[in-house]
């Protein structure tokens, strides 16, 4: 059942919340009506039926979107979403981060195979963003691992719930939130795609079902990242009885996503070098958090 919950949350809640953000936040900030909340689903289904144009050599380009999509789902299966993750006994935080990485590899391979200068540029930016953002996630997760003595993600969540908040975990949560915007590809850090500048970067040559898979994977990715932040670093509600722990988790995820959406709307895009300078700072904050964890705080 937990399989269904995790996959379902990732696949359905992702587009739905995106719709909510578009209607209730972005449209409101822009003082306009906005599309219906289920518009992202309409878009996805429409794209799935559209003609699939291929501009590069087949093999890699054909399977990279599926691999990225599947990797995000696999990461979702390793993520605690209110309950013990279905595959939690077979993979820990390192496996989780690597599945996230596989999704990034899928994006980059798509960009590289398309070979358009725009997609190459986007792929390069995607790599750079990954290089500079991923350490934050890892350092924060390692902080949690030090606090609980295990690298299994459910153990971290449970341990943080039992032991209550500590300085190190709060600092880690702040650092992870500061990086969240970039991890799920929102402004001011949607530098790899940058529609107004390099026309979608790695996805410039994609159309139809491939683009749909990527978009859907990114919707799901929001839920996965928000779940990690909510379950491990903001653990209130983890110990409730069955329906309530999921409800508490959902509430936290929704709040996080809406907050991210708000930041997305009110910010302009940064340049890649500005983003890197920013993330060196965030990494430093995360390292300070880890230092606290090492001295037991």
């Amino acid at each position: 059942m937990t399989f269904a919950i995790n996959i379902g949350l990732a696949l359905l809640l992702g587009p739905l919340l995106a719709g909510v953000v578009r209607k209730m936040i972005r449209a409101r900030v822009h003082s306009r009506q906005g599309p219906p909340i289920v518009q992202p689903f309409y878009d996805l289904f429409k794209l799935l039926g559209k003609e699939d144009l291929e501009s590069g050599p087949g093999l890699v380009l054909r399977y990279a979107p599926m691999v990225a999509f599947a990797a995000i789902l696999a990461a979702a299966l390793l993520t605690p979403m209110g309950l013990r993750p279905p595959l939690g006994g077979y993979g820990d935080m390192i496996v989780f981060t690597y599945f996230i990485t596989i999704a990034v590899v899928g994006v980059i391979m798509t960009g590289l195979t398309s070979a358009s200068p725009y997609s190459m540029l986007g792929a390069g930016r995607e790599i750079m963003m990954h290089l500079i953002v991923e350490p934050v996630l890892i350092i924060c997760l390692v902080t949690a691992a030090i606090k609980c003595g295990s690298l299994l993600m459910w153990d971290m969540a449970a341990s943080n719930y039992v032991n209550g908040p500590s300085i190190s975990m709060v600092v880690a949560a702040v650092a992870l939130f500061l990086a969240l915007q970039a991890q799920i590809g929102k402004l001011p850090f949607d530098i790899p795609e940058a529609e107004t500048e390099i026309m979608g970067g790695p996805f410039i040559e994609l159309s139809g079902p491939k683009l749909a898979l990527f978009q859907w994977a990114f919707f799901a990715r929001q839920i996965v990242y928000a779940s990690v932040l909510a379950a491990i670093f903001i653990p209130w509600g983890t110990g409730f009885a069955l329906p309530w722990n999921i409800a508490a988790h959902l509430l936290k995820v929704i709040v996080i996503i809406l907050l991210v959406g708000l930041i997305d709307v009110v910010n302009p895009r940064l340049r890649i070098d500005q983003a890197m300078t920013y993330f060196f700072g965030v990494i430093f904050v995360a390292l300070v958090g880890m230092g606290f964890a090492l001295i037991g705080a």
Partner: peptide, 24 residues
């Protein structure tokens, strides 16, 4: 399993494939 799901979704709309030159 996830890949299979991805493939199902990919095929769901029955989109046809066409080779095109790179768009510049």
């Amino acid at each position: 399993g996830c890949l299979a799901l991805a493939y199902l979704i990919f095929r769901m709309g029955g989109a046809r494939t066409r080779e095109v030159p790179m768009w510049l």
